[in-house]
Design a protein around this nucleic acid. Structure first.
Lengths: 183, 183
DNA sequence: AGAGGCATGTAAGGGGTTACATGATTTC
DNA sequence: GAAATCATGTAACCCCTTACATGCCTCT
């Protein structure tokens, strides 16, 4: 059983109970960079989780609002998933695919693309740095600690991607001058 | 129109014509780390690409083998996709999701998991280093250059992930001693 | 009374995986 | 002749996205 939105939702509910609507906003805010989810999908998954007994409705409020809470079975299942990796969906990166195929387009455009990748990495780095600095520095719960760790991962990726793209542009330019002088 | 296997297949065919069967092996070998694809999906996509006129059958061999080749329209479409990013599927990382939710499992298990992440990064680094060193060093075509660049990206990711996981373990240990002494 | 937010749901379609199915050709 | 490999395809199922649909509650 693959399924990761399942565990994303289960995990967020484990951090704090709430309704689908509540959860949706938490997906948009804290989790958007790790595991984005749409409204439609989320409601469906919550019903499945409830049907499987991993979460339960503890209260029904105005407008049919359902307050969800993780059950004991749900916690067990969450721990099981978290401590048993190996069944994750494979990584796919469209941006890396582009680079892989960059030899198939005119060199000029290829170079241009790489410069764009570097620029994008820099803006991501800026965005995430700003996000980190805007975070409440007094938070020291476990959830905030690991949320910060995930953010740090993003920052390191952005940094690395910028370094990589810039070094690639250099290597590309060297390569181009080489081949043109050989001819 | 999202669709990336489409362009992965189109791009590989642009590098070199061949049959679905040929392509499948190239997916398993050179492209497995960038954009994995299954046999089933690939044959379906090739038929769609042919129906859309982006590739064409140039020859039919034994066992109904179809030799495919990229058309002019296909090249145009490939260049368009590569130079116009922005419609890529969102990034989802199950392993990062696990870290994000690590506060929901017992600290001991959380730490254990992080150590495992560091170990995995190290073995990935070793695997990719070996792969790089086994590559034909005399290759200097554009495709090989950019293939090497993609591989370098993977190496940098592995390196970064190891650094990150190790620093996280340190921070986690500090945090644990802090809270235990405060009590 | 109307606007905006709260709250949940369904339907259609695309992309991906697994499993099943079939047959031709080459190799030993 | 048997086994391995070549070669393509179909069917069922799951995950995700977009769009549509519906109604309630609060605030002004």
């Amino acid at each position: 059983m693959r399924v990761s939105l399942r565990f994303a939702a289960l995990g967020l509910l484990a951090q704090h109970p709430g309704s689908g609507y509540d959860l949706l906003r938490r997906f948009e805010q804290s989790m958007a960079n790790v595991w984005p989810a749409t409204q439609s999908q989320l409601y469906g998954e919550l019903n499945k989780l409830a049907a499987d007994g991993l979460i339960e409705v503890t209260d029904v409020g105005p407008r049919g609002r359902k307050e969800y809470q993780v059950t004991a079975a749900g916690r067990t299942e969450l721990v099981r998933w978290m401590t048993h990796p190996g069944d994750d969906p494979p990584h796919r990166s469209a941006s890396l695919l582009r680079v892989f195929l960059l030899g198939e387009i005119p060199p000029e455009k290829a170079r241009q693309h790489l410069v764009g990748v570097a620029a994008h990495a820099e803006s991501e780095l800026a965005r995430l740095t700003e996000l980190r600095d805007s975070l409440t520095p007094w938070g020291d719960s476990a959830a905030e600690f690991f949320g910060g760790a995930a953010l740090d991962y993003g920052l390191r990726i952005a940094q690395m991607e910028g370094d990589w793209a810039r070094s690639l542009v250099s290597a590309f330019d060297e390569r181009q001058t080489e081949t043109s002088t050989v001819q």
